[in-house]
Design a protein around this nucleic acid. Structure first.
Lengths: 191, 191
DNA sequence: TGTACATCAGTGAACGCGCGTTCACTGATGTAC
DNA sequence: TGTACATCAGTGAACGCGCGTTCACTGATGTAC
């Protein structure tokens, strides 16, 4: 063979990674097959050797985006106990840095309103990611607060989303600070 | 003249109303000029007698959508005092009915993730609507809680958005109930 | 060892379709004289 | 009162462009014999 055994798989991963960033930056409809392939250093014609359709790429991109977030947080929270993890997670998630970097941020905050309009495979990938994240939050919460995980995640994502609609950085920062304080109270962690 | 003096204005309003619904259902990129005009009973060629561009229609549609929400809530909350208004607003906003009807619902929950990708005029229209809603919430809140208005709105919109990602109706209902309870506590109203 | 053939990731031109936008035209009514 | 002309909301064909998808081809390498 012309290429190494892993070459095709490596190419695919490069394409998926590029798509994971572009989908968050521009939304599922906003990204083009040709553009993603160019970012991976290829021409668009080769796309269909890797994916049966653009939709399949979007599914892979959403899985990848959730996976990236999960790995990043796992690294960041390594060695911390439940309450410490919750505090650090809230501080990182509900932050101006996250607001300003949608392309590398949480897919929930970036894609929430696009998703109900997508086809089933895409919605399922999204829901997989949401459920996994809720599950992680549940593990950190005390038993009597476990049922709040989904609602806490909604508050976090909502705060980041709305802060992105505010053109004034200080208004956005205040909103995020108010949200962080309330989230920590709800989680039962002291500050 | 062939048509009554108000005819053109009436047509424009019909187009804007159709767009306000369609934009929420399908997003700003998802709606087509021809489709909106057909819904208003016209052909697409006449569009540019009313709007300079599709973007101008989207701007008008977002203003209209926020206006519809505002009028509906004003009607519903007529005669109630601050705390009563807050309670009724939360119950109506953070509800399964709102989750299930994005096309007639709050533009924040429906468009949050589309908006950062839009051009300035569209973003400005959206921010106008957001600020007006925050202002109304502030009027209902006691003085020491007024600064929370933006964060409360973020929590409401986040809860509705995330509930739309959940395919299981009961999971969604639980999330919404948890959010309502927390919102009322934050607002300082008893239940 | 050498030759013919198979494999397959990637190339680049082309197709079909939808969509925003343009434009010449229609036809009913108002206005000028 | 009657005729010619202006107005203007709306029509429908056409244009240009971008995008997802298809497909014949390339060319480097492995395999069969």
């Amino acid at each position: 063979m012309r290429y190494s055994d892993t070459h095709k798989e490596e190419t695919r991963r490069k394409v998926v990674r590029a798509a994971a960033t572009a989908v968050r930056a521009k939304g599922p409809e906003g990204v083009g097959v040709a553009e993603i392939m160019a970012e991976a250093g290829l021409t668009h014609g080769g796309f269909y050797a890797h994916f049966p359709s653009k939709e399949a790429l979007v599914v892979a991109a959403i899985d990848e985006a959730f996976g990236q977030s999960a790995r990043r947080f796992a690294r960041m929270l390594d060695g911390l106990d439940g309450p410490q993890s919750l505090g650090a997670f809230v501080d990182a998630y509900v932050s101006p840095a996250h607001r300003d970097n949608p392309a590398s941020g949480c897919p929930i905050a970036t894609l929430s309103s696009d998703l109900p309009r997508q086809g089933q495979p895409v919605r399922q990938a999204y829901e997989r990611g949401v459920r996994a994240l809720i599950g992680r939050l549940q593990n950190w919460l005390s038993e009597d607060r476990r049922h709040l995980a989904a609602s806490l995640l909604a508050e976090m994502a909502g705060a980041v989303s709305l802060s992105r609609a505010m053109s004034d950085d200080e208004d956005a920062a205040r909103l995020l600070a108010d949200a962080r304080a309330n989230l920590k109270t709800r989680m039962g962690i002291d500050q």
